[in-house]
Computed example of a mutant assay.
Amino acid sequence: MMTAKPTGHYTLKPDGLYLQFDRLFHAPIEEVWYTLTNPTAMQAWIGTYTGSPATGGVKFRMSFEEGGDWQNVSILDCRPPHRFMADSREGAAPMRVYCHLVEGGGMTTLTFGSRLQSAADAASMGPGWDYYLDRLVAAHAGRTMPEWETYYPAFTNYYRGLHVPDAARS
């Protein structure tokens, strides 16, 4: 059983400020990509989608959120098994996420990022992404899923205290 801890940090990209996370898998890149992107495998840790990503868009639903409605998601970049970027413009706030996978030495590193509307959003989004990414690790390894109560509100102070890059200050 892994001990949950907040792991996000800020990174500044040309299109804005992101909260970025890394996870390490003792598995080949194709196996991690499958757990991350296959609609059936995704059900174990976050949700699912319908449609074909090759068309540039899918309908996605998070299974573990209240009112988990279907959302239209645009696939902005998809290069299996190394990277994808997606945009959802529905709901209270638009969301852009990316995943980048690198394999080496029998392990695969996942770098995941979620664009923030403002640095203040990290206090609510950070605990959620730590939770979902730890669910991804648990699903891939066949381990017991973490409990939401371990992440929120416990991780909020960590994310409130993150240093915002000077270039991102407005």
Rank of each mutant, 00 (worst) to 15 (best):
R79F: 02
M42R: 07
E147K: 04
W70T: 10
M95H: 08
P94I: 14
I46R: 11
D121E: 13
R143D: 15
S74P: 12
S88P: 08
T48H: 13
V73N: 07
F60E: 15
A119M: 06
S124H: 09
M125C: 02
F112W: 04
T40L: 06
A138T: 05
P146I: 05
D87V: 09
H82Y: 01
S88G: 11
R115W: 00
V102Y: 07
M62K: 13
F112N: 05
T109P: 09
G106D: 04
A119E: 07
K59S: 15
M145Y: 02
P80N: 07
P81V: 10
L116K: 00
T55H: 06
P39T: 00
G68I: 11
T50M: 14
D130S: 02
R96G: 08
N72C: 05
S88E: 08
A123N: 00
L110T: 08
A120M: 12
A123G: 05
A120Q: 11
M42K: 11
S74H: 14
C78N: 15
R96A: 09
I46C: 12
W45R: 12
V137Y: 13
E90S: 14
R89C: 09
D121N: 09
R89E: 11
M62H: 15
G47A: 13
H100G: 06
A122Y: 00
A139K: 07
P127Y: 00
L101Q: 03
D69H: 15
M107G: 11
D121R: 00
Q43D: 05
F112T: 08
Y132M: 04
